[in-house]
Amino acid sequence: MFSNIDWDVIVRSLPYLFFDGMRFTVILTLLATAGGIVIGTLLALMRLSGIPALALLAGAYVNLIRSMPLVLVIFWFYFLVPYIGQWATGAERPIQVGAFWSVLVTFTLFEAAYFCEIMRAGIQSISHGQAQAAQALGMTYPTAMGYIILPQAFRNMVPVLLTQTIILFQDTSLVYVISVTDFLGAASKIAQRDGRLVEMYLFAAIVYFAISLAASHFVRRLQHRIAIIR
């Protein structure tokens, strides 16, 4: 069964796998998380704002994105972003956007819909009394939000936000469908070039598993520590 395995192919391709592939994956994950949380929080504030137009708009966006598979969203933005670029810069034809930017926009806007729901739950979990206390002190809505509500909401939701980031880390593998070279893409390229599917895919699985497992254990320990403090 395992007689024909060539483990050496993994060793030889480690630099490519990690310096090209994994680097892409990690950078995409981190940037999309940061952007996603910012936009997601904005969307959450829009949904909770009490202004019907804003709430409806944000709600429609979130519900639309959450009803679509990520693969479809990747295809959408892959074709849409050049046209958006053309419209934004007033050029004559769709702009050639690099794979990285297209994918970054995709994941940021996709995850924003999910981060929005997380932040919305977080904001709503802060007792109403906090907002009232801030108001009683004369704070305006932006001040109360920025200094009282959001910091607490954020702290409460850190474990959930981190878990969503781990999910995002795994989801980045889907850039495969537009032939972008992330960690899985790199492994796949080597697999097909050298005919070593078994070794490369098993290795990729083990690496993803190790990183995700370590990260989720970290999040669980963090949850315990926060729970004790509160």
């Binding site: 795994q170 989801d171 593998s173 889907l174 078994v198 990729a204 699985a205 993803y208 598993f209």
Partner: peptide, 20 residues
């Protein structure tokens, strides 16, 4: 939970037939 769905699919479709 810790292996991306796409990777799991590749394992079932490409790797399984080779290791049985």
């Amino acid at each position: 939970r810790n292996i991306p769905l796409l990777v799991q699919m590749f394992l079932w479709y490409f790797v399984l037939p080779e290791v049985v």
